[in-house]
Design a protein around this nucleic acid. Structure first.
Length: 285
DNA sequence: ACGAGCTCCTGCTTGC
DNA sequence: TGCAAGCAGGAGCTCG
């Protein structure tokens, strides 16, 4: 599942491959991934053709490929989105949704099994697409203010994991890195945000930054074929996960068996010893 | 305004 | 064996 480190890995891959390239032809194989382009798939194809890519940018899990004319191709990988660069005559991977033929004879392909992600044209979005402006800065942003975000978290009446997953508070963190960060900071997912000290709030955010920086260095996390970089390679960070997906395995810190618990209709993984149930728990968290 | 829950999607895994 | 339910979950949306 692509979170910030995976999206940044993809961005870096695209930067070296599409920057300066002109789109010669666009093929939309499935309408859903371009659903946010309200004028429809045909218009999407026509309006992109002839444009030239500048260097790809990212905030949180959003990725966009600016055009030299000031617009941008906005992309979100959702749960299973991938960008692949292939020869036009290479066999299509399953679930290939959009094809962009580039002027150097390569073909940029958007592949997405579950189609939670998608592509759209963002008018004037080269610097920061309007569709992205509502989310908070991510921890890799030079202007990220950890103390200010910590204050905002403490002002809430919710559980810490919900706050970490709220992209308007801090972007880029998904279920995997939320669990890893909370383990690193020895904090239970349901701990009430208002009960955190200023230092603890910063500690949790710093932990999230740390685990994502490590994951980025490893080329991202992958459990299966759903996340790959532009060359089709998986990352290696799954070998370094302390708790996520590790139910029954020993906590790397104390050896206690990791527990999986239902949370937000999904799963949370924690060490029952390092991350004790909080005295103050957010209601329904 | 804020917090919480629902929904969209496909394909692999699990259970009867 | 076959079918259905369970599970994976980002983010826009609705509702209280």
């Amino acid at each position: 599942m692509p979170e910030l480190p995976e999206v940044e890995t993809v961005r870096r891959g695209l930067a070296g491959l599409v920057t300066g390239r002109r789109i010669e032809h666009v093929g939309v194989l499935h309408p859903r991934p371009v659903r946010r382009h309200l004028a429809g798939p045909d218009d999407f194809a026509v309006t992109l053709t002839g444009r030239t890519f500048a260097e790809p940018a990212r905030r949180g899990k959003y990725l966009w490929l600016p055009f030299a004319d000031g617009d941008a191709l906005l992309a979100h990988l959702g749960m299973s989105g991938q960008f692949r660069l292939d020869a036009p005559d290479a066999p299509l991977a399953p679930n290939t949704r959009v094809l962009l033929d580039l002027d150097d004879g390569t073909q940029l392909r958007f592949v997405d099994q579950r189609m939670f992600g998608g592509l759209s044209l963002s008018p004037g979005g080269a610097a920061l697409p309007a569709e992205v402006a509502h989310i908070g800065r991510d921890p890799f942003d030079p202007a990220f203010d950890v103390a200010a975000v910590g204050r905002r978290i403490r002002s809430r009446r919710t559980g810490i994991k919900r706050a970490l997953l709220d992209q308007q508070v801090v972007s880029g963190i998904g279920n995997i890195y939320a669990d890893e960060a909370l383990w690193l900071a020895r904090t239970h997912y349901a701990r009430g945000t208002w009960t955190l000290s200023a230092a603890k709030a910063v500690e949790v955010l710093t932990a999230a930054t740390t685990v994502m920086r490590r994951a980025l260095a490893a080329g991202g996390t992958s459990f299966d074929a759903l996340y790959v970089d532009v060359n089709g390679s998986s990352g290696y960070f799954d070998r370094a996960l302390a708790v996520y997906g590790q139910e029954g395995r020993p906590c790397p810190r104390c050896g206690t068996a990791i527990r999986r618990e239902p949370f937000m209709n999904r799963s949370s993984y924690r060490c029952p010893r390092c991350q004790r149930s909080p005295v103050a728990t957010a209601r329904a968290a």
